[in-house]
Every structure is written in structure tokens, then in C-alpha cells.
Amino acid sequence: MRYEAPETLDAAIGLLAGQSGQVKVLAGGTDVLVQIHADMIEPDVIVDIKKIAEMREIADEDGAWRLGAAVTGKELMDNAAFNAAWPGVMDGVRLIGSVQVRGRATVGGNVCNASPAADSVPPMITSRAIATVIGPNGTREVPVQDIATGPGKTSLEAGEFVVSFKFPKRPARSGDAYLRFTPRTEMDIAVVGCAVNLTLDDAGICTDAIVSLGAVAARALIVEDAAKALIGTPVDEAAMDALAAAASAAATPIDDKRGTVEFRTEVAGVLAQRAAAIALERAKS
């Protein structure tokens, strides 16, 4: 295995494109090193992208945040302004691994590792963040929900990698939240996860909403019916009931040691309601 740590995007593109054997992009390494350790992958070349300045920046571009794909969870947690802007994204980031893992792990890696249970992915999806993807054929913009295509699989082509995520400006009276169910409070993998992002008008009526479920399908889902249940309502009990029903209806989980189909389906509805309640509070404050 060869290790390369390019300092520019162009150098990284050149390295990734010019390889014959297996090439792996290394960000925080908290998944890649485990995969190497378990002999799941045997890369010929590792391209460490942490030395590329653009990929390490957190920038407030006039209310529209840009987050470098190699920014660590800890760096993000230490950024008070970003925490205030996207508390729901941070709900997800704060649940990734342990303190030690968040010292290395990146949101870019969480998205590109393509685990259906990744905690930062549903709130990244509901933030409507757009990934800037770069590769041998130039740059393209990809909504976060279109990066993962299934467990461990992404829509990135050979030689492509995510440089950064661009968040839209947030309208006033907006709030987002992410919750997951796990048997342990920390260091566990979501049995179900749900993110809600909503906006209210000045009368308290929901004008926009987006709901995403994690760990109940081959990749994180956007549940349009769940958003419809909220839009046009004051997010009252009737809307919450409709939200839960839509979230449960959209869940197509598997049975495994961490949860049964019935349990996950039910919990998807419960978490949607609870996440919506938190998002609502945040939108009002």
C-alpha cells in the first residue's frame, strides 16, 4: 500500500485518476482503517485528502454555510455559529461514535461511507445541502440524498470525491432536529433515525418541511408524505398523527439483531413526531 497526501485538489484528482489498482480516499479514517483491519479492502493506494485546504474549511458565505468534506466532527462541534445555524445537523454529528472517533471522523466520510444508519446523513439531507463533487471530468453538484445508492455504495464515479457541502440560506423561523433510537445512548448504531427540518410563517403555520428517515431502508429516505402532513398546519396533534403514519408507512426496514420490522416501523413514526416537536421549538425560538 502506498500513502499519498496531496495538498491541492488538482494533485488529488491526478492521483485518483492515474491509478490502476484499488484506490481509497482517506478522510478521518474511522471507517477506512476498520475496513483495512478487517481485510474487507486491500487498497494499493491511499489518498489522504486532509491536507487540502478547501476541504478543511467551515465558512459562512453570507448565511449560506460551506462545509469542507474533511472537517472533523470535533471541529464542527467547536464552531458555535454553525451549531446555532444547523442544530439538527449537529444532533446527528454529536451522535457519531465516541469523542475519540469524532476527533477524526468527518461528515464527508459519513456521507460517502454510505451506511444506511449514518447519523449525520438524514439531517444533512433535510438541510438540503448540496455536495460539490470533483473528478477527472470536472465538478458537479449532487444533493446529499443522491450520494449513497445502497449500503456501502455511492453514485460517485471512479476518481471522484466530495470536496465540500453547500447549505442553503435558512429562512427566518426555521428549525431542524435529528433523533435516533439505540439501545445504548452512545457508541451505538441507529436502529431508526429521523430528521425533520421545517419553516413557519409569522402566524406559526408550517410553510415548508422535509423529513428523512435513516436505518429503515437501503439508504436514508426522504418521506414526502410526512412533509405534506406538516405543511399548511400549525404542527398540531392532527398533523403529528398524520406525520407519524406517513413515516411508518414509508419505512421498509429489515429484521436484524438490533430491531424487528414491526418495531422499526413503529419507532419511525414516534421519532418523526419527537424530532418534529424539537424542530418546531427551534423554529419558534
Binding site: 500513502y3 479514517g29 469523542v99 472517533v101 476527533g103
Partner: peptide, 11 residues
């Protein structure tokens, strides 16, 4: 920064 040294390459 607190890390797991098993998740960092020596290099």
C-alpha cells in the same frame, strides 16, 4: 485532539 491510535495511520 483525543483519538483512537488504532484509527490513525502512523504516517
Amino acid at each position: 485532539v483525543l483519538v483512537c491510535s488504532c484509527l490513525v495511520l502512523g504516517i
